[in-house]
């Protein structure tokens, strides 16, 4: 048994898709209350790593622990384990046939078996947290992308998770809507939520993250505080990635 003090612990994680090895041995921990941003070029395996943390992808080898529970154990109750881990997707993935309120209550009712009044109260509290209490009766299609993403955050928070995973939560948004979502996430970080965030928003990573992890080619290349990884990167791969991201007009192909 692993000590319970890690929020997430990943040991020698490998993931293959057919013959393609996407994760080539990842070792990595997140402490409770930490905000860890994962950066790296497209195709480097960031999403796959995140999806292995709540087992949306089944790892090929290695172990994943969340709050000391081994999710990769064959006899684990994966549905129960996932309740403790919220996930926010790039494409929001709200349920289009339900109102905002139903989106935020459905899993509380069906999974946590909370009553109607209790789940609605918790839903409204969380919609309030993301600044959308007045949209409770709208349908997702009636909301802007930024509003949809904030509903998705409220939906995950309503399950009272101890860890939140974000997979490029602002990448599908129009530039002027990115700020609203990042503000919500920043607030969440300040409230002490443990967060693992895949993002291309370097300013967010620098300001909010306790640690930044740079991935490339299925391995972690650099892992440390943002001042170090973004401010003074050690590896050439990190440097060239940051040059491309921070100054896109000066790409050295």
């Amino acid at each position: 048994m692993t000590p319970v003090n890690h929020a997430v612990e990943i040991r020698d994680l490998h993931k293959h898709f057919g013959r393609l090895e996407v994760l080539k041995g990842i070792d990595f921990t997140v402490e409770p209350g930490q905000v860890v941003c994962v950066i790296g070029p497209s195709g480097s395996g960031k999403s796959t790593l995140l999806r292995c943390v709540n087992l949306l992808e089944q790892p090929t080898a290695g172990k994943v622990f969340v709050e000391g529970v081994e999710l990769t154990h064959v006899d684990v109750d994966i549905d129960a384990a996932r309740r403790r881990v919220g996930m926010v997707f790039q494409q929001f993935n709200l349920f289009p046939h339900m109102t905002v309120l139903e989106n935020v209550t459905i899993a509380q009712r069906r999974v946590l078996k909370r009553g109607k009044t209790e789940s609605e109260r918790i839903a409204r509290d969380n919609l309030d947290r993301v600044g959308l209490s007045e949209k409770a009766d709208s349908y997702p299609a009636q909301l802007s992308g930024g509003q949809q993403q904030r509903v998705a955050i409220a939906r995950a928070l309503a399950m009272s998770p101890s860890l939140m995973l974000f997979d490029e939560p602002t990448s599908a948004l129009d530039p002027e809507l990115v700020g609203d979502v990042l503000t919500v996430m920043r607030k969440l970080a300040e409230e002490g939520m443990t967060m693992l965030v895949v993002t291309h928003e370097m300013a967010f990573a620098r300001d909010v993250a306790d640690r930044v992890v740079f991935m490339d080619g299925g391995v972690i290349v650099e892992d440390g505080p943002p001042d170090q990884v973004i401010g003074a990167p050690q590896h050439e791969r990190t440097k060239s990635f940051l040059r491309r991201v921070l100054d896109p007009t000066h790409t050295d192909v």
Partner: peptide, 26 residues
């Protein structure tokens, strides 16, 4: 869309629960 099942599962729903409340109605 595949993301619907993933969102439902990530909220702790079982496969059949997600089918019944999320996928089949759509």
């Amino acid at each position: 869309p595949k993301g619907q099942m993933e969102a439902a599962r990530s909220l702790g729903m079982s496969y059949s629960r997600a089918m019944i409340t999320i996928i089949i109605p759509q």
